[in-house]
Structure formats: structure tokens, C-alpha cells
Design a protein around this nucleic acid. Structure first.
Lengths: 247, 247
DNA sequence: ATATTTTTGTGCCGTAAAACATATTTCGAA
DNA sequence: TTCGAAATATGTTTTACGGCACAAAAATAT
């Protein structure tokens, strides 16, 4: 982790060909900040800090004390959990402006999963102590988190069933569609806007890296996708959806 | 589903060799009811209904409108979700006095999983509309659900990794330990207090029924467990834990 | 009590996917 | 630029597990 000044954070982002100013940061947090009273808003603003992370940098690790709520302002983040023999599994991905890293504190636990930056990212941190004490007073803030937790829990159950029951091709197809839904496509309307390693793709789809590469090649051969280094073009989305559906 | 009067519900439970009276029901709901004001308490009491379910009876189905919060007063319940080709997967189990069936309503969805009684069960229903409108006013009630959802989400992520990465023996060992933690042991200190079919055990452990039977037999041969019909005795818990740990 | 269906228990086989081995390419650092 | 280390790619081997078939036992209905 590297805690940085606003200035440094902004510079990092600019280097990643995106621009962000302090003026832009607060409005992005609006979905949460709008729920607060004037005094609460003031307290939050005072206590929040801005941080920049490089590609693959750790935002927090499994086992860390869950001290802060995180909000991704810019960039892309993966939430992953170690399994048998330390083999990581990506359980969620975060896009701007999503909140993350709050579950463990609500459950009174240390982090059960770690957060890493897929690419240069800017994160706002707010102490969980502030969140929880405000929550006890402000039911609208409570509802904010109830909705998010409920949706995440639904997705987690869905994911458990899909990862355990589908075959490799189905799981990879699902991951590709999931990445499209999460991060969208580039201007050409077919290239995924996220470039992740084959290893990450494997950890997202519950397979070995070899099999992620192999199956990706098979999809390319079948003209379902096109591969150009880390760039993946989705050529035949109906077919991907079919492969995903039938498992 | 069969909606019953208090009287009928009590009779069903008595038939299952358990007794429950109306006087006992409310105190069991205390963890939630204690958070309410006198007026709120009154409203809840008025709107809640008591229901009895027979063995294997459906409490609610996947796709149903998520109209009620459920609380299990007596019995045992499984929450399951259909996957590829309708193959069910048990995602959670419920013991008294646990709340369930509230996530979907909070997320604004229909039920994404169904609830079935493992054995004769008594359930209290409270309309989700009542819960949500009370929640907006009462932050303590909000916190009640935030904690539960956060713990469930942690367990769901844990489960995803375990079910996908562990081998059959590891998954079955985990399920047996999980059932012990959820429902406890009988007076002998080693027999699981829940008798589930091999099929249920398979759906809990993500394997085919054949493999659940096979692996269970293997454990029995190795003197890790003892099988007597549906009764399962855990003989060597350290060994079970080891098998669970190494996957 | 008897018949019928469901659940449990085993063996065998085929296959999907992991493990392993080894090029080849790309990338980062000196 | 050159070197070493990752990341990507692909073929081969091994194995865990699902699928299927069938028998026995138990539960349920008649």
C-alpha cells in the first residue's frame, strides 16, 4: 500500500491516461454522501483519505484488520480469496464507483479476502468506525448497505452454483460475459475494456492457467472470440451466451 | 405450503415428539423483537403468522415473490438453488432460531433459492413490507440485518472456494463438520443430530449421490465415521479435520 | 402381508480436466 | 541492447469423478 497526497494520486491517474480532480471525487461518492446530514457529511469529508495504487498493488490483504470502507474512484480492482494450497480465487471485481471492503468489519472479522488493483487505481478510504457509528443513527445509511450486501450475497450463491456445476467452456464463457457486464467494451463495441492475464482469467473461472489458455484458443479457433495479446474481442456473443447457458 | 392455525401447528410439532407453545414462540424471536419499540412490537405481533411444515415440504420456491421474512422456531431447513439441468445445490442450512428468506426482498428480487423442511418444522412469517418500513425508521433493526447478511456473505465466499477447490474427500469431510457445527451431536457426543439422505449430502457437498455413498463407505472403512442407516457417527474428528484442511 | 417405489450400495467405464513437460514469446531490468 | 524471468502456448500423461447399470435394502402404499 502507498498512501499518497491528493497531488500524487492525481498524477498517477493522469499517467494512466485518465484525469481526475478533487472536485470530481466527492460527487462520485454522491450515492453514499447524499444520505448524510450536513454534520455527518462534514465528518465524513474530514476523515476520508485518497490513495493511489499501481498495477497489481495490494490494497488490503486477507487477514488484515478491516479498518476502512473503500470506494473505487478510478481503475479496476479484484477481490480474491486463497484456497487449498494458497491457490487464489477471484470472488468479485470492482468498478468505479463501487464500494468494497466493508463486509468483514460489519461481521466483526478481519478481511476474509484481499483486494488488488488490476490497473492503476484511486481509492477513497473512510474509517469503518465512522460508518458504523453513523449507521446506528442514520437508517438510510443502513439501508444503503443492506441493499448492497443482499445483492452481493445473491451473486455469491449464483457463482457458487455456476463454478461448481458448469464445465470449463461454460465457466470461461460466463467469465467473459461477466467481464463485459462489469467493465464494458471499448469503442469498437467488441473488445473487452479490461486486459487481464490468463492467470487472472483462470482464477476467475476456476480452472488452471493452462486450461484458460487452451480454452481461449479453442474459442478463437471457433471464431467466437479473437485474441490479440491481452486484448479479447467478443465476436459471437449469442454463441458465448449459449455456451454459458448449457454449461 | 400449508398455512395452519396455531393449534394445528402445535399439534404437528407434538407429533414430531417436540412440544412448543405460543408462549414459547415470542421469546425465541427475542433477538429481533427486543430491537423494537412498544408500538412496533405490537404491529409485528399482529402481522406475524405461524406455519407448520412436514418433512420435505416446500416452504418457498425459487422464483416466488419474496413477500415474507421467515424465522425457524423448531425443526431443520435447507436452502437450495437449482443449477445446470435443474441439479440442486444446498447453499445454506437453517437451525432454530435463525432468520431466513429475507435477502431477496432486500435486493428487490424474487427468491433466487428455495427453502425446504429437512424434518417437521415450525416457521414464523412476518411480511417483508413491515420489516422494510420499520427498518427505515429503526436503525437498530437495520444493523441486525447488516450483521447477518455480512456473516452470510463471508460464509458464501468461503463455500465457493471450498466447493470448487477441494477434492471429494475434503468436501465430504467439510460437510460432516459443517453439519456438526450447524445442528450439533446427540447425547452420545458423536452421532450427528441430523439425518439427511445421501442425495442431500451429495447436494451439500457438490458431488453425485453415488460418490457421496462411496466416499461415506470409504470413511467408514477407515474408521473415521460409523454408519447406521441414516445415522452418522463421527469417530475420528481430528482426522476429518485433517482431510478437510488438506482438501 | 404384499407389492411398488425410493433409497442405498458397488462395480465398471469414459472422459473432462489437472498435472507435467517443454517451447516460444513477451516483458522488465540491468 | 542483452539477458533473465514471467507469461503464453501446446502436447502428453494421469486421474478424479461423473455416468450408467444393476442389485439389495428400506420405505411407502395397497
Amino acid at each position: 500500500m502507498c498512501r499518497k497526497t491528493y497531488f500524487e494520486a492525481i498524477i498517477s491517474i493522469v499517467m494512466a491516461r485518465k484525469t481526475i480532480t478533487i472536485k470530481e471525487t466527492l460527487p462520485k461518492l454522491a450515492s453514499l454522501m447524499d444520505l448524510l446530514s450536513a454534520e455527518e457529511h462534514e465528518v465524513f469529508e474530514q476523515r476520508m483519505t485518497l490513495h493511489a495504487f499501481r498495477r497489481n498493488e495490494i490494497i488490503y490483504s486477507e487477514g488484515d484488520a478491516s479498518t476502512y470502507l473503500h470506494c473505487l474512484i478510478a481503475g479496476k480492482v479484484k477481490i480474491q480469496k486463497k484456497g487449498v494450497g494458497g491457490r487464489p480465487q477471484i470472488v468479485r471485481v470492482i468498478k468505479p464507483v463501487d464500494f468494497f471492503g466493508y463486509r468483514a468489519a460489519f461481521a466483526g472479522q478481519n478481511y476474509a479476502s484481499g483486494a488488488l488493483a488490476f490497473e492503476p487505481s484511486v481509492v477513497v478510504r473512510i474509517p469503518m468506525a465512522t460508518i458504523i457509528s453513523t449507521l446506528i443513527e442514520n437508517p438510510r445509511l443502513g439501508w444503503f448497505f443492506i441493499e448492497r450486501l443482499s445483492k452481493d450475497l445473491g451473486r455469491a450463491d449464483e457463482r457458487t452454483v455456476n463454478l461448481t456445476q458448469k464445465h470449463i467452456r461454460g465457466r470461461l464463457a460466463e467469465s467473459l460475459l461477466f467481464l463485459r457486464d462489469s467493465y464494458g467494451l471499448e469503442e469498437d463495441g467488441s473488445t473487452l475494456s479490461i486486459y487481464l492475464s490468463r492467470e487472472d482469467l483462470a482464477n476467475l473461472s476456476n480452472m488452471t492457467t493452462s486450461n484458460a489458455i487452451r480454452t481461449l484458443s479453442a474459442f478463437a479457433q471457433e471464431k467466437i472470440i479473437a485474441i490479440d495479446g491481452k486484448k479479447i474481442k467478443l465476436l459471437d456473443i449469442p454463441k458465448l451466451e449459449k455456451i454459458n447457458r448449457i454449461g
